[in-house]
Design a protein around this nucleic acid. Structure first.
Lengths: 399, 399
DNA sequence: CGGTATTTGTTCTAGTCTAGAACAAATACC
DNA sequence: GGTATTTGTTCTAGACTAGAACAAATACCG
């Protein structure tokens, strides 16, 4: 246990934590009654009343008039967030290899507006990317009704340091990009800008609002141009010392395998990446998302070659996942990106492979497609932004 | 973030957390002054005085008279634990394939007495094992001066469920053993008995008191009969959904490899386990610890074959570790067991292999031998026991 | 339709716990 | 011996919730 200096508790801490617990519960679980909030927190009715009163006073929540609910006793009023632009919101940004997205998101992860654009895989500089995002963001904010923006989160396809710099994003052609600073220059009023890796943020979103909600231990596999991943353990992200955890594409799986783009031989990505899939199908390895879509369509049409390609690839997916499952002991593996699209052609083989390669006590692991799909990383970016405010919501709101 | 019901804070929580923070700090960092405890916690002198007073009143700490320390100002008294049997202690048990150990351990992980015995690899039943441990424990307690025993921790070479049952320990021949219950039957007065995997507990000990102290993200490799491992992330253990995380020996590294004892093909253990090492050296694969010791001696004497065997094996160690490092992004990898003994013959090659196979931003990872050595798991078991009491020490002490 | 039962909101006081001021004590320095 | 500095002790103020008492709002029952 890493101990932090200066963490002695005091009355003010009590208040702050209780306010945070109530707001966080509403953020994750949705509107609920004051009475239920008492049960959730274990606090008395008077304490909950005062805490909700304070959150309401600073405009973070609203109390709806109580209505009869068919049971005896005084009905309890419902505590909810404000609709739309009446409450605070965050900006969520997503920068992938062939697309960019911006959303304005309110508490409860209410998407107030969202814009997504495709772009070519030609590598665009960070400066140009941020300029484009700024334009999209302005339009998004206006379209959302110009809510108060309290922060921003950014999901990037690359390795992101804890401080928010993009150390390297090979498929974007970026090295040592201070992305948070570039965005801060465009959005001078933002109080916080946090940057994270897209797979880690997608995992965060699936754990809170997607297929993995309620699962404290999971692995998320992001299969876009590269193979990325993320681990959630005991409800929290495993980011590692530098923030770079999750590079599952570079797990060595075959000492006699192919040379990877990273320079090593036999990485998992050389067997299950987009290029590997297309190569195995005898298609243009550089065919990108379009060719992958074609392959999926061929498989849906019953094309034997396409089906066999997915079967073989699924074997390798299972091969690499077996190691991850043996090491991390997750409840669930969530497949995103192209393996979410192709889940029907790979799911069973992956499960079979895990059944033979994972130790028996660890074998009860669910393998599922992402439910948030293309929005996973964007919602994760929004959560990242909210996580700055939720620990001390009233202070954030009043300063 | 997984939210827990009933976690509202109140005045009593403030007191409990502050008492815990002080005692935990002393447990991990050793005796220090009241004034320094004020700096550590951020609390006022009067608050710290009252908290230390309460810990002293229940016999958990003692305040040594202050002495001039050469600087101006009133010297601050030192807060320390009681010596030896005057303070509370825990029982630490360790059950490996060819040895058993028991220790009596006081706060601050002061080993008051320790007994360790070798035993054959013939599989001994859990019931017989516990009976033997009970005898050892009684002798240990007496030898330690019969301190008050407040709990017990057990490190086992096997897969341990969160609830403390040994799901399977292949090398012990155990399946579904309720070890905590067996021990509870022998030690009716114990307030708690917690069981954990030996690699996870060794990692805990190294992170708190060993070579990895202060490192929040690390990987521990236990190389005994089998290859086990553990991950510590952000200062906390990664145990996974069922508590079974860390089975690094069964990471698949070679699809064309050998059949593992677990039934799969190409597991890491088939290339870096004890039997693999001995096989590669042309020795008796069942030669065990003695033959490994001989191989190390041969290498020390300059035997070219022995050195080459270690070099080749180190390549495989690095091959598998590269995946772990890419996924977990640790600051440090700690090698225990036989690779701690043989570190001088494997360390450099492991580092070289990581340098070529780990992504550049993740490459700054230290590879070091365990400093706690054979005691690591035992001390980890003691920490496990203390972790039951430390969150609410006064309640533990007075009820 | 009035009385009863139940559940929750509001008001208020009691209690816990630390913050911080004021003064005391114990040192080193001049 | 006086001054400066640091920390301990004592005490009151303030923050915050616990919980009692009463009020309000419902459903149920005869």
């Amino acid at each position: 246990m890493v101990q932090q200096v200066g963490n002695g508790l005091r009355s003010a801490t009590v208040r702050t934590r209780n306010l945070s617990q109530i707001l966080t519960h509403l953020h994750l679980e949705g509107a609920t009654t004051r009475s239920a909030l008492g049960e959730v927190t274990g606090l008395t009715r008077s304490a909950v009343g005062a805490l909700v009163g304070e959150l309401e006073a600073v405009g973070l929540v609203r109390e709806l008039p109580s209505e009869p609910n068919g049971s005896r006793g005084r009905p309890s009023p419902v505590v909810d967030f404000h609709d739309g632009a009446s409450g605070p919101a965050v900006l969520a940004f997503e920068i992938l290899v062939d697309s960019m997205a911006v959303a304005v998101v309110g508490l409860g992860c209410q998407v107030l507006s969202e814009h997504r654009i495709a772009r070519s895989r030609e590598q665009v500089s960070a400066v140009d990317t941020v300029r484009d995002l700024a334009g999209m963001a302005q339009r998004c904010v206006v379209e959302a009704g110009s809510p108060e923006i309290i922060g921003a989160g950014v999901a990037v396809a690359g390795l992101v340091r804890r401080g928010g710099e993009v150390a390297v994003a090979p498929n974007l052609g970026w090295v040592d990009v201070a992305l948070a600073e570039l965005l801060a220059a465009e959005f001078a009023d933002l109080r916080s800008i946090d940057v994270g890796n897209e797979a880690q943020l997608a995992a965060l979103a699936e754990a809170r609002r997607g297929v993995a909600k309620g699962f404290g231990d999971l692995i998320y596999i992001s299969a876009e141009v590269g193979i990325g991943g993320a681990v959630v353990s005991a409800g929290g992200p495993v980011v590692g010392h530098g923030g770079f955890a999750g590079e599952v594409g570079h797990i060595p799986v075959n000492p006699a395998g192919r040379t990877c783009a990273c320079g090593a031989i036999g990485c998992w990505e050389t067997e299950v990446g987009e290029r590997a899939l297309l190569r195995r199908a005898g298609m243009d390895s550089d065919g990108g998302r379009v060719e992958v879509g074609r392959l999926i369509e061929l498989a849906r049409e019953g094309d034997a070659t396409a089906s066999e390609v997915f079967r073989e690839t699924a074997g390798w997916i299972g091969f690499g996942l077996a190691g991850l499952v043996n090491v991390m002991n997750p409840q669930m593996v969530v497949l995103g990106g192209m393996y979410r699209e192709a889940f029907e052609f790979v799911g069973d083989v992956v499960v079979d492979r895990l059944a033979t390669r994972v130790l028996e006590p660890l074998r009860k692991v669910l393998v599922v497609p992402s439910s948030l799909g293309a929005d996973a990383a964007l919602l994760g970016a929004a959560e990242l932004a909210f996580d700055r405010m939720l620990p001390d919501p009233v202070r954030w709101r009043t300063s």
